[in-house]
């Protein structure tokens, strides 16, 4: 089988999986879900590392490093900000002292 068809198969199956796994999301979680999905596409960092690590051209190296910085911001920032949002959704049990909210937001 043509290799492109294998990739196409993976692509199409992933489309269905992507729709199926989030189809029952409540509107409460739309924002964190969007943010989490946003962080996942930060995986382009892997692509940026692969091309930058294989180049022998100075201009390409600089462009690659810029791509790595941008992708790392997307990936790391995305997961951290999602986690911060989701901390708010943790059901507060009759907890007396434990306040896990980080100080930066207590304005």
């Amino acid at each position: 089988m043509d290799e492109a068809v294998v990739w196409l198969t993976i692509f199409i199956l992933s489309v269905f999986v992507g729709i199926e796994v989030i189809s029952k999301v409540s509107s409460t979680l739309h924002t964190p879900l969007m943010s989490g999905a946003n962080a996942i596409h930060g995986i382009i960092l892997l692509g940026a590392v692969l091309v930058t690590g294989a180049t022998d051209n100075d201009v390409a190296l600089v462009v690659g490093l810029v791509a790595i910085v941008l992708a790392a911001v997307n990936m790391v920032g995305g997961f951290v900000v999602t986690d911060r949002m989701l901390q708010m959704f943790v059901r507060k049990k009759p907890k007396p002292a434990a306040a896990p909210t980080d100080g930066g937001s207590a304005a």
Binding site: W7, I19, A37, H41, G47, L50
Partner: peptide, 25 residues
């Protein structure tokens, strides 16, 4: 699409998942 160009299955699957679920969302 970048994952396809680089022949990297993680990029392809992760990107497609986000593309599909993002469109639906």
């Amino acid at each position: 699409a970048g994952g396809y160009v680089l022949s990297n299955v993680v990029l392809l699957v992760a990107g497609t998942l986000v593309g599909a679920s993002g469109t639906y969302l």
